[in-house]
């Protein structure tokens, strides 16, 4: 279980997150909803230890991972699929996957399992990441994260700019990870997609978590969507 407790985070002079708290449970999908600039990406970076916390903490099964150096966070099996994919563009598909495998010294079995999920990547192993199509790049970004064999998976707008068939494929992978008891935090703009997949929904605004709701309640009474998001 990942527990974000009252974190305050900022860049230099600008504070972005104010006392933000979240809880991601194994086998559940927590969706972060909010407008652009609300602090969703910052939340993910803070969990990964890429931004220093001014106060608060991030606990993984009781261990304070925010006290660790950033490179230790993925070794705790927390994987990050960032917005815009952020692949190692000049490296090949195989090398990008290798970077993922190196995090926890995973071997061929993990590699095969990940490539079985994305067979398209297997055909493109020697191709440079920057030459892949948008959908393939998203597959690779996800595959690279799955190489960590995550217990917590952070996905930042994984379906942004993809065609419907690709979106469906990514969705299936997310559902599969959920069934494998992974705790998933998902940033997603499309409200219908969120409602169909989420277990919990957190409304982020101006760097604060306004409210975390059970998705079931939201499905039955979508009025809160209108109130928080204006949709």
């Amino acid at each position: 279980m990942l527990d974000v407790r009252g974190i305050n985070v900022g860049y230099d002079q600008v504070q972005v997150l104010y006392d933000l708290s979240l809880t991601a449970r194994p086998g559940e999908i927590l969706c972060l909803l909010g407008r652009n600039g609300a602090g969703k990406t910052t939340t993910m970076k803070a969990i990964m230890g890429l931004l220093p916390l001014r106060s608060g903490s991030v606990l993984l099964d009781g261990e304070d991972i925010s006290a660790l150096p950033a490179y230790e966070v993925p070794r705790r099996r927390i994987a990050y699929v960032p917005q815009g994919r952020r692949l190692f563009s000049e490296l090949t598909v195989a090398e990008n996957i290798e970077i993922g495998l190196m995090v926890r010294d995973a071997g061929k079995a993990t590699r095969d399992r990940v490539l079985d999920i994305f067979p398209r990547l297997r055909e493109r192993l020697d191709q440079r990441a920057e030459t892949l199509s948008g959908g393939e790049q998203q597959m690779l970004a996800t595959a690279r994260a799955l190489c960590i064999e995550p217990q917590v998976l952070l996905l930042d707008e994984p379906t942004e700019g993809l065609q419907p068939s690709m979106i469906e494929q990514i969705r299936q992978v997310i559902v599969q990870m959920k069934s494998e008891n992974v705790a998933i935090i998902l940033v997603e703009q499309r409200v219908d997609a969120v409602l169909s997949i989420a277990d919990q929904v957190a409304f982020i605004e101006n760097g604060r978590n306004l409210e975390t709701l059970e998705a079931e309640a939201l499905r039955q009474d979508p009025s809160k969507l209108t109130r928080y998001l204006g949709v």
Partner: peptide
């Protein structure tokens, strides 16, 4: 080599390298 791979990854995106356990 592995060291070379780590080095090139750090060169291309040091923040992502860190997010993948590389001691930048």
């Amino acid at each position: 080599t592995r060291i070379g791979l780590v080095l090139r990854a750090s060169q291309l995106d040091s923040e992502m390298a860190l997010a993948f356990g590389i001691k930048v």
